[in-house]
Amino acid sequence: MMIELAEVEADTSRPRTSDARGLQLSIAGIKLALKSTDPTMKLGVTGASKLFLTEETACDATLSAAWGLLDEEALGQPLFDSGALWKLYRGEDDGFTLRFATPYLGERPYKLARFNHDFTQGEVLLHHPFFAQDQVLFPLEYPLDELWLLNLLARGRGAELHCSGIRDERGRGILFVGQSGAGKTTMSRLWEAEPGVEILSDDRIVLRSVEDGQYCMYGTPWHGEAELSSPEKAPLAAIFFLRHGERNHLRDLNRAEACARLFSCSFPTYYDAAGLDFTLQFFEQLTSAVPCRELSFVPEREAVELLRRF
């Protein structure tokens, strides 16, 4: 694959095309491969996903991309309706199909992604008439890329949270969890100005268990308003649940509340009982290993100072 990383880092606005018939992404240590045997399909990567390109060829999961003429074919048993872009179906072969449609293009799906039972193999079909002839395509375009990773994580690999996260100048990973409006972007911008600090993401972080009961946090391509995204990682040292306040204040949380609040800021596979079990156990173990507190804060540097003393 002819990718110059320096150029990728310098400009994430232009798509990066792949001369080879595939590309690989590494997100949270999970290697995803996208391939196509169709010479007319120009594969590329858009946005912050370019930062997650890897040359490694040994992958955890692989999707093949192809053109199709998608119709209202039988997709299997309906499992979940997101209420917007995607629906999930279960096939007779125990596989899954994600169906993507948008009101702008009508009822017909613009994309189908079929997976095997554990989401490690599959194919993504794009409805050819909806796409321009010479268009550079990223068939994993959001939300398929994130949904794919979420289903892989729910199978014993980890969990993703709606949060921002930093690696401070001492190398410690600090997580700021909260739903929209809680202050994730504000907190990211406060830390962005601090020397030696790396913002791993202003909106999505993946957590995974590593050896000796430790946890690692990873940046993801799915940034928020501040567009801060990094493929880096850090050992998780503390979790703060954000809320705007009239003063800077820390409150200890008991494990039950911490677990519930982690769950409310995660992206559970509601259609998968085993995945839900794993996610809840993961949060239970996480809250026994990592301190969890609520942080009420005012958007000033004093909040950073308070956390530095923590």
Partner: peptide, 15 residues
């Protein structure tokens, strides 16, 4: 929680 909508406006999708 369900990632139902686009996260950011217009990137590489149809048309």
């Amino acid at each position: 929680a369900v990632l139902g909508n686009c996260k950011t406006a217009g990137i590489s999708g149809p048309v």
